[in-house]
Design a protein around this nucleic acid. Sequence first.
DNA 1: GCCTACGTTGGAAGCGCTTCCAATCACGAG
DNA 2: CTCGTGATTGGAAGCGCTTCCAACGTAGGC
Lengths: 336, 336
Amino acid sequence: MARTLDDVARLSGVSRATVSRVINGGSVSPATRIRVAAVLEETGFRPNAAARTLASGRSGVVGVVLHVDPHQLFGDRYFSQLLQGVSDVLADRSTGMMLWLGNRSKEETLDRILSMSLLDGVIVTAHHLEDRLVDGLLASELPTVLVGHRSADRSASYVDIDNVAAADMLTSHLIRLGRTRVGHITGARGTFAAEDRIAGYRYAMTRAGLATDGLVVDGDYTEAAGAAGTTRLLERGIDALFCSNDSAAAGALSVLRQRGIAIPGDVALAGFDDLDFAATLEPPLTTVRQSIRHQGSEAAESLLDLLDHPAGGPRRVILPTELVIRQSTAGGVRGV
Amino acid sequence: MARTLDDVARLSGVSRATVSRVINGGSVSPATRIRVAAVLEETGFRPNAAARTLASGRSGVVGVVLHVDPHQLFGDRYFSQLLQGVSDVLADRSTGMMLWLGNRSKEETLDRILSMSLLDGVIVTAHHLEDRLVDGLLASELPTVLVGHRSADRSASYVDIDNVAAADMLTSHLIRLGRTRVGHITGARGTFAAEDRIAGYRYAMTRAGLATDGLVVDGDYTEAAGAAGTTRLLERGIDALFCSNDSAAAGALSVLRQRGIAIPGDVALAGFDDLDFAATLEPPLTTVRQSIRHQGSEAAESLLDLLDHPAGGPRRVILPTELVIRQSTAGGVRGV
DNA sequence: GCCTACGTTGGAAGCGCTTCCAATCACGAG
DNA sequence: CTCGTGATTGGAAGCGCTTCCAACGTAGGC
């Protein structure tokens, strides 16, 4: 059994350097290549990753940091989809993936990641306005790609969607239905997606000359918050409701149905994300489709590209979103 | 800035070996320790992980293999909970976690894992009767802990629950209610949990002298299968229904309610897993609680223990389950 | 037929760390 | 005062691989 390069070299009658070239694609004569490859095949030789990393300075492993509360990790499918997207690309390129979840404080996680000196780069979700972990990663020399980004992260590499434009598009759709009292239940304040969607909502309302006073209620992306927010907004009077994500919309839906309020007859309802359950709600939910999985794969592509061509500067990717119109906002102008 | 051990050694006036001892807890005089520690602190020195691994033969990184279809990974919370449990323990012990999902074939995944020679060990889910990936891992010299296990895996280390006993307990509970036509919708055939739960169900029925002919319908842990299976079982006549997991039970529930069948009046209903939604169904669902997260953390503990004490032989852990009785089987003997 | 140049190859120098071994030292016992 | 002992310490040998460099051989140009 060949355990080291030297073993293979001895077995195939060449030097260790040549075996290394065969494995890594250096210039080797066809005859030699064939002979060495045969030994490699036959012995099932596997190079030692640590030695390789030490000598070459590249490990073929990247980190993925999903620093979130456990209940959030479980709560929706955002993270598993993101992970799947990242993993798809990394597996294709034979790159390993180390994972950090939110078990420790951000400071501690940051420290652990930086200590794991064998990482070639990291992908990290950046959803909050303030995030020491993201700041620390960007400040380090570790190549980093953000999923989501803050306006301050101009010089960073990131993958994101245009939340402002998407929320604007969705709100405008509600307005085109003839609705004038469009409520909005926000996502968790302090996250960029929430703030940007609020901004998009306000743009659309203002452009249409509609007031938003009292029509915005804080939520946190959960069903419970959607239900609570809906109750409050109903008191103030609404004929349409834009929830910052589909889960909140599901919460809103149950309140509306419980009160016998017709959807979309009395209140048109829309969410955001197009999670798989959105299409099977009763009525099916109008929403904005953003492919989380695609964001994950794009982030991985960007990182690998960044590692291969460090001189290329930061990679910035804004992925498209799509307005998905379903029954919850169907039926044209109100009352028609 | 100190980049290497030699830098630190020079800065603190000792040899590289001594610095290494300070970092790794070798025998060093208090005075020297303090002096070196100060330099360490001051320079923020981080040892190179690859060099360390190469020299010591231990990497401080373990692999976690969740080789499943994407839709399954997304589908329920099993995997995120398991991951969280594993991650909790690993983070506590400053151990890194590399993740493999089911992007490639099992053979290919196995090959990739074995090539990633810097892993100290792996945790892998073993749910299927046949699994080349699990076989390959067990056959390799890589220390491996299974989550779930097959009877053939006697000499392996694993963490599992006693599915037979749990299903028996649950079925017996239904029988004690006075039910005689207890149906069972299985999990995905070919998985151990499904087969074992069927066995437990049969034990309980047989012991009570009840027939099971036509009362077992194949499912696959999904809501859809639960609904479809329920429709079929209703034709054959049942007064109780044990679904192999909570998702299937949710599917069963919607069919029962839709047909106006009283729960538990006409049909007592039970699931398995005690996922968080089980308690909020209408009526709340009787089920078997198994803490997936706990299984994850136990698996990690076992693996780390195995790495520290290789001579200790395989670690085998059977975690307890708990019968959680709720409204869906409440009310004592039928008709009373 | 000679010189140049290029494609191949082996030797050797590390990559940064752990750890064995021997040397050193201070100290208490005899 | 000398010797033995144990605690510290430094030196040096790797861990297994990549990669630079020089040497070699051969083929082509003239």
